[in-house]
Amino acid sequence: MRKLSWGLVLVLIASLVLTACTAPVAAPTGGAQPAAEAPAAGGADDVVRVALLLPSTINDIAWSQSIYTSLKELQAEMGEDKLEIAYSENMFNVPDAAAAIREYAANGYDLVIAHGAQYGDSLMEIAPDFPEVSFAWGTSTRTGADQGITNIFAYEPRGDQAGYVTGVLAAKLTKAKVIGLVGPVDAGDAKLHVDGFLAGVKATDPEVKVNVSFTGSFGDTALAAEAANTHIKAGADVLTGSSQQVVGAIGVAKENSIPWIGVQADQSTAAPETVMASAIYDWKQLLKDIIAKRAAGTLGGEVLQLTYANGGIRTIYNEAAPAEAVEAAKAAEAGLADGSIEIVVEPR
């Protein structure tokens, strides 16, 4: 028996070590290479090293996937020898993320992006220790400039604009005049989205009722599915929602042949016939701007936004979506872009 227990201990240790090896913090060694090994022609440093911290995974078809896709597109544009990317997934817990942020900053990364509102306080503590490194944090409008921090860029997708346009579309699509919204928590980016959505629906058809529910989590896929089921039973014939857990709700929408309207990333990959439109976050220009500002000597202290006006938000429509509804939504896009539409948020 003793031998068996020792064998078990060994297996356990081995499995722990193996999981540790695949742990996300293990950054590619390229980032930590001394300058001497960098390409000789460009001098010490013409490579931009970007590290990305994600609360969920790069294929969550929502929040994390949107910025990862944009960063990859930017890399394809700039060239792999000019833009190095490292990323850490599933960093929902702040202490894990803080350790990873510090690790990246200490290992020669030029820009560390903390892609979640929860990372702010940690970032404010870490950033002053690495004055040469730029940090970016979203969703936020706080750069820490009031505390004398100069190397944090804050960014914010205007979720209310994405919500408004999808709200207009949803109001046109619903026949039962009931829409179900599966939200994560009633705060931050998600609240912005809900407020915009309600405003968009109201501006299009005041008779339409929007049932809003929150799961209290960003990753509770099963509860999101259950919420979608409840919405359908309560009479909703169009569903929408935000955050990475909505894949569960999309599955339910697909099963019940009910149209889904997505935000954040192109969600038609999950169910091409179900997803009528996705208001996607396109981070490429914002990332490009941050890198350009850094190159010009501004390490942080500015707030950047994704809007319809700057192309940071665009909507992809399903070909099967009714033309009249798409036209109304496109009019809303144009109105938001030129400022003729103002989003009126009513207290809930």
């Binding site: 995974t57 990753g219 896929t221 099963a222 857990q245 894949v247 599955g251 697909k254």
Partner: peptide, 18 residues
């Protein structure tokens, strides 16, 4: 049953502590 039966989709951490 969660991924095949209920949701028809797989996502990392989808049990969310269930």
């Amino acid at each position: 049953s969660l991924s095949v039966g209920l949701l028809n989709i797989f996502q990392e951490n989808m049990t969310n502590g269930l």
